[in-house]
C-alpha cells in the first residue's frame, strides 16, 4: 500500500505544479518564434539548476492544459531526425496571463520574504 504523503510533501507537490505552469509559460514567452517540448525541458533544467525537480514527462500534461486554456498555440515543424515536432508559442491571452502572474509572483515573493525574515527574527529571539 502506498504511504500517504506527509503534509510538507503534498504541499511541495502542489506548489511545484503551480509554479511549473508559470515557469513553462515564462520559458515559452522567451522564445517568440516558438519552442518545442524537449527544448522547454532542457531550458527549465538549465535555468532552475534542477531546483524544480521536473520529471520531463510531466511537462506534457501541463503543456496540454495550457493549450486547452488557450494560453499556448501549437504549430507543427518538420524534423530531420524523426517525427514532426510540435512548436509551442504564447497566444495573446497567454502573454497577458504571463505578465499578470509575473507581477503577482513578484509581490507575493516580496511579502513572503519579509514574513520569513520576521519569522526568523522571532525564532532567533526565542533561542
Amino acid at each position: 500500500m502506498k504511504r500517504p504523503l506527509r503534509f510538507e510533501e503534498s504541499w511541495r507537490v502542489e506548489l511545484r505544479r503551480g509554479l511549473l505552469q508559470f515557469a513553462v509559460l515564462a520559458v515559452v514567452g522567451l522564445h517568440k518564434e516558438g519552442i518545442h517540448g524537449y527544448g522547454i525541458a532542457r531550458e527549465l533544467r538549465a535555468r532552475t539548476d534542477g531546483v524544480m525537480e521536473v520529471k520531463e514527462g510531466t511537462l506534457y500534461p501541463i503543456l496540454h492544459r495550457l493549450k486547452k486554456e488557450r494560453l499556448l498555440n501549437v504549430r507543427a515543424e518538420r524534423s530531420d531526425t524523426g517525427p514532426r515536432r510540435k512548436v509551442y508559442v504564447l497566444t495573446g491571452e497567454g502573454d497577458r496571463v504571463l505578465r499578470e502572474l509575473t507581477v503577482n509572483l513578484r509581490v507575493l515573493f516580496e511579502k513572503l520574504e519579509a514574513l520569513m525574515d520576521d519569522g526568523r527574527g522571532g525564532l532567533e529571539e526565542n533561542d
Partner: peptide, 11 residues
C-alpha cells in the same frame, strides 16, 4: 500526449 512523449524520447 503519447505523440509528444515519443518525440521527446527520440530528441
Amino acid at each position: 500526449l503519447l505523440e509528444d512523449l515519443y518525440t521527446h524520447i527520440r530528441d
